[in-house]
Amino acid sequence: MSTHGIMRITKRFVLVVFALLGLTLGALSWADDNAAALKDKYDALAPQLKSNVFNRPIHLDSEETSNTLKGDIYAVVDYPFATVNRAFNDPQQGPANWCEVLILHLNTKYCRASAGGNGATISMNVGKKTEQELGDTYRVQFNYRSVATNPDYFQVDLSAATGPLSTKDYRIVLEAVDIGKGHTFLHLTYSYGFGTAGRIAMKTYLATIGSAKVGFTKASGDYVGGVRGLVERNTMRYYLAIDAYLASLALPADKRVDQRFATWFDATEQYSRQLHELDRQEYLQMKKNEYQRQQTAQ
């Protein structure tokens, strides 16, 4: 090969290296910016985190538009950043750990993680708040993606294109930042979209068996209801599931599952006006059965 040809190939190689380096530095910069923004949010919410109606260091926001619903919870958890990062942002074990979280929710009937050529997926069946055969439930297929990681920050995204009752564009996003002294600041987002059919289905539910249900935000002197109350309740349920999972890690492995169910139920009962659905024994037995079922791929 001529000297000119070698120089041309070398030049292309150098350009590729710089392009890849630019992408890497850009990703690191984005993660650093998000970490700084989340730390700023922690500082801004400090008074609300210290004193609020939840009697724990959390803050809840929600938003309803003509075709989307979104809930956000910001919270301080008493676990080191490394523990939280390892639990939810581990490329190998993270997806399976998310299933350990998601199965705590009343409406989750089955959850199983699997690896594939396009990354990890989480297959989750959702249904009623009571026991059901899997054939009577709806399967939601989440893609698991670690969006950003640096020494004191991470973001993980679970996304699904479709859901039950003509809903769509599901996202569960968790980001976390180290705030020192063995504490971590979390931001959980739960959101989804819907069309006309989805809105009609949700309104039918809320006009019948869900008519008396409320959320956590007060407006005009009373708690919000309707679809905004719905997304607030489920965002809180998912947050309490994350917290229950983290709390269980201090126990021997064979004690963790039962303790998670008990911890989650007891936590939801602190907000019984919004979250009570079943008595304790009914919930624990249902979840024991569902957890056993999901040990085998369905």
Rank of each mutant, 00 (worst) to 15 (best):
S2F: 15
S2A: 15
K11V: 14
F13G: 05
L15A: 14
V16S: 00
T24Q: 07
L25I: 15
W30F: 13
K39R: 12
K41G: 00
D43S: 11
R56Y: 00
E63W: 12
E64H: 14
L69S: 03
K70T: 09
G71D: 04
A75R: 15
Y79S: 05
P80C: 05
T83K: 10
F88G: 01
P91Y: 12
Q92L: 15
P95R: 05
A96W: 09
N107R: 12
T121K: 12
N125S: 08
N125A: 07
E131P: 14
Q132W: 11
L134A: 01
Y144A: 01
A148E: 07
N150Y: 11
F154G: 05
F154L: 09
Y170C: 03
R171K: 15
L188M: 03
Y190N: 10
Y190F: 06
F194M: 12
I200E: 05
A207L: 14
D222E: 09
Y223P: 04
V227A: 11
G229A: 07
R233Y: 14
N234V: 05
M236W: 00
Y238S: 03
Y239F: 13
L240I: 10
I242N: 03
A253V: 13
V257C: 01
Q259M: 09
T268A: 13
T268P: 01
R273F: 07
K287Y: 00
E290I: 13
A297K: 08
A297D: 02
